[in-house]
């Protein structure tokens, strides 16, 4: 398909100066929902500890691609994925790789904050307890505290760890979800429009948090907000109608888009 080729060529362009180790990569990833093909063969490399943003008009397949990266598409009955997704050069769709282990390494934060109807403490402790990461209650306390600290929520909730997580404000809930993901020490964190349900102040706090996490985690962020992409990401990928149109350094994309569609989109002509 023509566009696919184009985008692969562009990939070559953008990778002229590799910035480090490749953490994840996708090769000819297609996703079908029943009969209809939602992604038409995506190729992409994601480098370790960089922040990459996915932008594009709604329905173009950003979330679908993001979910391929930790096999969350497995949970949708009608979804079928073909192609290869590699994590540290290992095919994550290979039967020998355990999806439980994969998701412990590639965590996910969702569009709508979804704390469990449990206490704040239990929300954070959920992952470590499942995976048997800690042995003692004291260790667990430490994991909870450090995760909440990294998510910048500790000071706000340290006195009410037993209060239900659902009682927090929207922004706090989303940070709780980020802390919950951090608690299992993932290598990659996927975020699907993490701020779309939040007010501007909460959004800026999350953006700050993303900045903090930069460097320790590989972050993949879907956003419909181009300013946000520009503010937080190192690289930006533009999707359109199930194709990856362009992937480049964020400042390049926003100042000097190579593709007409990208330019139209970021200048607000459609989307």
């Amino acid at each position: 398909m023509k566009t696919v080729k184009l985008s692969s060529e562009r990939l070559g362009v953008s990778n002229k100066q590799p910035s480090g180790k490749i953490k994840m990569s996708a090769r000819d990833v297609k996703v079908f929902y029943g009969e209809s093909e939602a992604l038409h063969g995506i190729d992409m490399d994601i480098y370790e500890n960089e922040v990459i943003a996915f932008i594009g008009p709604s329905g173009c397949g950003k979330s679908t691609f993001l979910r391929c990266l930790n096999r969350m598409n497995d949970t949708i009955d009608v979804a079928k994925v073909t192609g290869q997704v590699l994590l540290d050069e290992q095919d994550i769709y290979d039967p020998s790789l355990d999806v439980v282990q994969l998701r412990a390494r590639v965590g996910m934060v969702f569009q709508k904050p979804n704390p469990f109807p449990k206490s704040i403490y239990e929300n954070i402790a959920y992952g470590p307890r499942l995976h048997g990461l800690v042995e003692t209650r004291r260790e667990m306390d430490e994991v909870v505290e450090s995760s909440l600290r990294r998510a910048g929520l500790w000071e706000e909730v340290k006195d009410r760890l037993d209060a239900p997580g659902t009682g927090l404000s929207g922004g706090q809930q989303q940070r709780l979800c980020i802390a919950r993901a951090i608690a299992v020490s993932p290598e990659v964190i996927l975020m699907d429009e993490p701020c779309s349900a939040l007010d501007p102040i909460a959004t800026s706090i999350i953006e700050e948090l993303i900045d903090e996490l930069k460097g320790s985690y590989t972050l993949v962020i879907v956003t419909h907000n181009m300013q946000q992409a520009a503010r937080v990401s190192d690289k930006t990928a533009f999707f359109h109608l199930g194709n990856l149109i362009e992937l480049n350094k964020t400042d390049e994309i926003f100042t000097n888009p190579q593709d007409k569609k990208t330019e139209d989109y970021i200048t607000g002509r459609f989307g």
């Binding site: 930790n70 439980v100 282990q101 412990a104 965590g107 979804n114 959920y126 995976h131 993901a181």
Partner: peptide
């Protein structure tokens, strides 16, 4: 979304059902 939250953390399906 609650199920996704749990599965996304690497819980198995039965863990998600029993614990969430």
């Amino acid at each position: 979304s609650l199920r996704d939250g749990s599965l996304g953390l690497g819980a198995t399906q039965s863990e998600t059902i029993r614990k969430v």
